[in-house]
């Protein structure tokens, strides 16, 4: 029964508008309560475990220089599992999951029909865009952290762990090498921020989330292909994937921050441009879904 309790137009339940942290909290809750998000994180967590198990079961030692970076070192030191897994995930697995989340941001809400209700609430278009991007960033962080954590766990369980010899020849302790792994995870998270912004931008153009997801993932592949064509060398510094695998600097002693800085600057550029375009598009968009 619909109750017939009369309801006057009072201001009960109203407060002075805050910054709207509740919406961010709700966005994160919805994102991480979703089965799809968990499925992607579990798939990412499986990558380092697969690598570790495969190396463990294989009788022949991996020849240096074959397979992904650092693969040959795993048997000597389990700490390399996390780094190897991150290297393996960067070209496709991570962009794929990030593309799914970033492409879904606005188009997914439009597809569910919730976009109009969020805007009527009123969430505010700029605020919604910012919160949606923040959610995508949180997922980038969660995704790389998952690979790193799962890799560290698999390495510790299956292989001996000890001091690590760096690319520069120096040896660092287990504690410091864990810190370096976290740094690499942070580097890769930053690497994915530009792609997230691209996904957000594409997502404002359509009501079909799958289309936005696919377009984002395809762009990440195209960018990497272009980055491998020597004829387009002039273009390379502008490609958002250009620095994706340049985190070797973080494995030197002392740490060289050059590539981290260049990467962060490039990603910030993509965030600024795509963010501005997404704002321009979304703030004037007729929401008809």
């Amino acid at each position: 029964m619909l109750s017939a309790k009369a309801n006057g137009p009072t201001r009960e339940g109203a407060v002075r508008p805050g910054l709207g942290w509740a919406l961010l909290g709700s966005e994160l809750a919805v994102l991480f309560r979703r089965l799809r998000t968990w499925a992607m994180l579990i798939a990412l967590a499986a990558v380092p475990i697969l690598i570790a198990v495969a190396v463990k079961l294989s009788s022949r030692p991996t020849a240096p220089g074959r397979g992904p970076l650092f693969l040959d070192r795993i048997t000597q030191n389990g700490l390399f599992v996390a780094v190897t897994a991150l290297v393996v995930c960067v070209p496709l697995f991570l962009p794929f999951t990030v593309g799914v989340v970033a492409g879904d941001t606005i188009a997914g809400e439009a597809n569910l029909g919730t976009l109009r209700y969020l805007l009527i609430a009123p969430a505010g278009r700029i605020r919604l865009l910012l919160v949606k991007y923040a959610g995508a960033v949180a997922f980038c962080l969660a995704a790389t952290a998952t690979v790193a954590a799962s890799g560290a766990l698999a390495g510790v369980v299956l292989f001996p762990v000890g001091p690590v010899t760096l690319l520069s020849g120096d040896t660092i302790s287990v504690g410091e090498s864990s810190l370096r792994s976290l740094l690499i995870a942070a580097y890769i998270t930053v690497s994915l921020l530009g792609l997230s912004a691209i996904g957000l931008l594409i997502s404002t153009f359509t009501d079909v989330p799958v289309g936005a997801m696919a377009a984002t993932v395809v762009l990440s592949v195209v960018s990497q292909v272009l980055d491998n064509l020597p004829q387009l060398e002039w273009l390379h510094p502008w490609l958002f994937s250009h620095h994706w695998l340049s985190f070797a600097d973080l494995l030197r002693q002392p740490i060289s921050w050059t590539s981290f800085g260049e990467n962060a600057l490039l990603q910030a550029g993509y965030i600024a441009v795509c963010g501005a375009l997404a704002y321009a598009k979304f703030s004037n968009k007729d929401v008809l879904s």
């Binding site: 109203a14 407060v15 805050g18 709700s26 009123p122």
Partner: peptide
């Protein structure tokens, strides 16, 4: 409930 909590959270004027 989850849906209404979400939509209410979108309104910055609504008391949490």
């Amino acid at each position: 409930t989850g849906n209404l909590m979400r939509l209410d959270a979108a309104d910055p004027h609504a008391s949490s």
